[in-house]
Amino acid sequence: MRMRTLELGVGTFMLAGLVALGVLIVNISGLNPAGSKQSYTLYALFENAGGLTQRSMVSMSGVAIGEVVSITIDEQLLKARVEMKISKDVDYLSYDTSAAILTAGLLGEKYIGVTVGADTEMLADGDTIIDTQSSLVLEELIGKFLFNKVNE
């Protein structure tokens, strides 16, 4: 009898630990099942990809459809070349899709927002999005504002 309550207690403890691990994985780290799901690769060329990091979200209308894999410099065009992994079910990105680097909230993370165009041809694995809008650099913005003030 004594041994049974012991075993029950230890079993509950182990179970609680495993459940905690499960919660840590699914709820807290939000381990994205899209990462292991089928995906295809798209590239985007940005003038400035400041603030964007690996695993940044790629979203369409606020819904996550993929994530950033790597950010490198394109040596011919001298622009930032962002490699993105897009979920396979999202196969309706038209050829004139545009991508912009946006910020979640005032101090939030940078993410890529994708807006679909009207073209009938769709982007396929390995294609590059050309119509892009760079991340907002506060210093540039202030600089422009001051410059305009001087001109007035």
């Binding site: 840590l24 994985i25 709820n27 807290i28 780290s29 939000g30 381990l31 695993r55 979200m57 979640a104 939030g108 993370e109």
Partner: peptide, 15 residues
């Protein structure tokens, strides 16, 4: 609250 948490906590890196 949850979205911010899940976006920043990485399983391999943090947990």
């Amino acid at each position: 609250f949850w979205a911010n948490m899940q976006a920043s906590v990485d399983f391999g890196e943090d947990v």
